[in-house]
């Protein structure tokens, strides 16, 4: 039995974000962004805190993040663009979620850095929240999580497949 990873990769959680959340260094910056999103879905915020660069780690408002993990329903992650330059990287990504009966999404550009082989979050260059146009997703439309899978095979149905 496998569990599809919430990050939308269409991989098993146990080989996708699971090990990274458990402490294995993320092999790529994209894998780190995916695992940080999945950590919100799984209420595993130690991972998010640990993967802040040391100089911004104390800026992490964990109390606020803990509330957010409980209150929001996570709808999906979409990685839009990854620009790597040596040990630094910029990632543009969209997070979709539901809050107070509203479908919303944030589009962010964040900076990352690799320290001793570990990718770490450094800053957010921009982040905008937008109400998500509520369109009914048909069973055969692509899933809104950005995985490219049909809705009925992805977030639209139970994530467990045999």
């Amino acid at each position: 039995m496998m569990t599809l990873c919430p990050c939308g990769s269409i991989h098993d959680y146990e080989v996708c974000c699971g090990p990274i959340i458990a402490g294995t260094p993320a092999p790529t910056v994209e894998a780190l962004v995916r695992s940080r999103y999945t950590a919100f879905v799984k209420c595993a915020l130690d991972h998010v805190e640990r993967t802040h660069a040391p100089e911004v780690r104390d800026d992490f408002n964990r109390a606020d993040a803990e509330r957010v993990t409980q209150q929001y329903e996570w709808r999906g992650l979409e990685i839009r663009r990854v620009t790597e330059t040596g040990d630094t990287a910029k990632v543009e990504f969209v997070v979709r979620f539901r809050r107070e009966q509203q479908e919303l999404s944030t589009i962010s550009v964040s900076g990352f850095r690799r320290d001793h082989g570990q990718w770490l979050y450094v800053n957010t260059e921009s982040s905008q929240i937008a109400p998500q146009r509520v369109t009914k997703i048909g069973r055969n439309d692509p899933c809104s999580c950005g995985s490219g899978k049909k809705a009925k095979k992805c977030c639209g149905v139970a994530l467990e497949v045999k």
Partner: peptide, 15 residues
């Protein structure tokens, strides 16, 4: 949020 902060030092709570 205050629930989390009030417990943070005592334990390592999850959400």
């Amino acid at each position: 949020e205050m629930t989390y902060l009030s417990q943070r030092l005592d334990a390592s709570p999850t959400c």
